[in-house]
């Protein structure tokens, strides 16, 4: 493997053993003066599946935005596959990390497959657009997310849940080794919630895509994610397997409610 060959057009290097796909080192972030994240240390290894949970305003979405390079940290460093995010251009970041947009509005009519094809923007030829490989990736993503029946329809006519699936397909078509999702199930019915979770698990198991998802539903998180990170007031309050993390004391301390999370696998 020659280093020189790893040009801008080459896919990002496969995560070497031990190099985390995503690493946040002492990251702090703020909107204007308001501190939202304080001293976050978090590493996500290749092929890991991590659910990010916590009460509203804990900084979950902010953490994802910092990881994606959309928001600059006020302190600390973000690394994608070992490289500091500040050293990477936008296309290089997009080839390492795909974000499922949290609901997007389209100013003009666009067919479902045209929206999914936007996931190929970091890969397609800058002047000529989609090539055969890109079209194949779009078709595969549509198939995989199971939205073939929506092809040809104006994405703006779809239900919120259907739109969410289209945006998920877009991120799958992007084909990055890390997939980041903010509330991927919020508009979905029960069957689609489970299907999306199963799809994330499958992408994770079969393709080795690392997944980081913000989830509100602790049962879904516990059932489908082997690792759970609890965020509270901008800090990591707990990090580990569902059984270790989602005990009644922590849930009471963080969420302020008395519940017991059924951690059975059924």
């Amino acid at each position: 493997m020659t280093v020189a060959a790893a040009s801008a057009t080459a896919p990002p290097p496969a995560a070497g053993r031990g190099v985390p796909v995503l690493a946040l080192e002492g990251v702090a972030a703020a909107y204007r003066q308001r501190e939202v994240l304080v001293g976050i240390d978090l590493a996500v290894g290749a092929g890991e599946r991590v659910a990010l949970v916590g009460p509203n305003g804990a900084g979950k979405s902010t953490l994802l935005r910092v990881a994606a390079g959309v928001l600059l940290p006020t302190a600390g460093q973000v690394r994608l596959l070992g490289r500091p995010i500040g050293e990477l251009d936008r296309v290089a970041v997009a080839r390492r990390l795909a974000v499922v947009p949290q609901g997007a509005s389209l100013p003009f009519a666009a067919r479902v497959e045209e929206v999914v094809a936007l996931g190929r923007l970091p890969h397609e030829h800058p002047l000529l657009g989609l090539g055969p490989a890109d079209r194949a990736a779009v078709a595969a993503a549509i198939e995989r997310v199971g939205i073939g029946h929506l092809v040809g329809r104006d994405a703006r006519e779809l239900s919120l849940g259907e739109r969410q699936l289209v945006l998920l397909a877009l991120a799958v078509a992007q084909g990055s080794p890390l997939l980041v999702l903010d509330e991927p199930t919020v508009h979905l019915d029960l069957r689609h919630q489970v299907e999306v979770m199963a799809l994330l698990a499958d992408l994770n198991d079969r393709d080795g895509t690392a997944v980081v998802a913000v989830l509100h539903d602790l049962r879904l998180a516990a059932r489908f994610f082997p690792r759970i990170v609890v965020l509270d007031r901008g800090r990591v309050a707990a990090d580990g397997a569902p059984g270790e993390v989602l005990g009644p004391e922590l849930v009471r301390a963080v969420f302020g409610v008395d519940v017991e999370i059924a951690l059975g696998t059924a």
């Binding site: 994606a68 974000v99 936007l118």
Partner: peptide, 23 residues
């Protein structure tokens, strides 16, 4: 026309365009 890629990214909004590799 040579920068059409950026306009395509902006279809989904500025933040989505950013995560799709558009400066």
């Amino acid at each position: 026309t040579a920068r059409a890629r950026a306009l395509n990214g902006l279809l989904l909004g500025e933040e989505a365009a950013t995560t799709l590799g558009i400066d």
